[in-house]
Design a binder for these strands. Structure first.
Lengths: 136, 136
DNA sequence: TTCAATAGTTCGGGAATATAGAACTATTGA
DNA sequence: TCAATAGTTCTATATTCCCGAACTATTGAA
């Protein structure tokens, strides 16, 4: 006799149930924030398997599933089944109502950081210093 | 022969070393965000023992010490020894330069949430509904 | 100088949380 | 009916968090 695995329904918090701590915790993970900013950027919904690799790193799908759950239960995204696949949309309009400016500030800060990292990684995009030119 | 405990110097990240993830993670804890908002509110510095109780809950001082370290190493506060006690000041001006609007949005969101919780807890501050009045 | 008091840190182990492989569910299309 | 696909749940391991106990470091008083 084997214990059965049941597929429980998705949980989404109400607007009042959404907390700042929950949002910050959910977005304090690099994989989750990458997923979330992508979902926000594409107004259209994004499904799980779009993110099997995040910034050149392969994410196991069980881990991905947990990340999506974390985002969902923090109230950041809404997921709904369309046949065998899930459609995810951001709830940023609702959150904007409860916590004005919060999501925008976080997404913006993340963009600034990513831009900085990209600049640091690709020195070709930078005007080389005299010293660097001499070392070449 | 006992292994000795050494008191290593405080670490503070440089501005470039501060990350969004780090900030969000540090502020995703209710105790830490309470400490931080207090330090931001009082421009003057706050020492550890001010926070032995946070929202009617006693926090052990070892735990508090860890929380202060987390805030420090996320780049949110700067701590410096003044004799036997530590003075903590917020680094929000620096962070504002790197991630404009981020801290303000988070502190503001937290204030909104706290106000909502306070309203929910003290029904006297709310105009009672007819139904509530009838049940009285 | 010595010692007690004070403020905070570090250590260690138990609790909670995160990661990821394997097995599973549920839907679709052939 | 069945294989393929998309995602979830289970489980074991790894990491992180919490807090009591022991410790460091400074100050002020005897």
């Amino acid at each position: 006799m084997t214990t059965l695995m049941l597929m429980r329904p998705l949980f989404h918090p109400s607007i009042e149930g959404i907390t700042v701590e929950g949002i910050l915790h959910a977005l304090s993970d690099p994989v989750r924030v990458a997923i979330y900013t992508d979902i926000v950027a594409q107004q259209c919904s994004q499904n799980c398997s779009t993110f099997l690799t995040v910034s050149d790193k392969t994410i196991p799908k069980s881990t991905l599933s947990q990340h999506f759950r974390a985002l969902r239960e923090a109230g950041l995204i809404r997921g709904e089944w369309h046949g065998v696949e899930m459609h995810n949309t951001s709830r940023c309009a609702e959150i904007e109502q409860r916590f004005p400016g919060l999501i925008r500030a976080i997404v913006n800060a993340h963009a600034i950081q990513s831009a900085g990292e990209a600049r640091a990684k690709k020195p070709v995009a930078r005007r080389p210093t005299k010293r660097a030119a001499a070392n070449k």
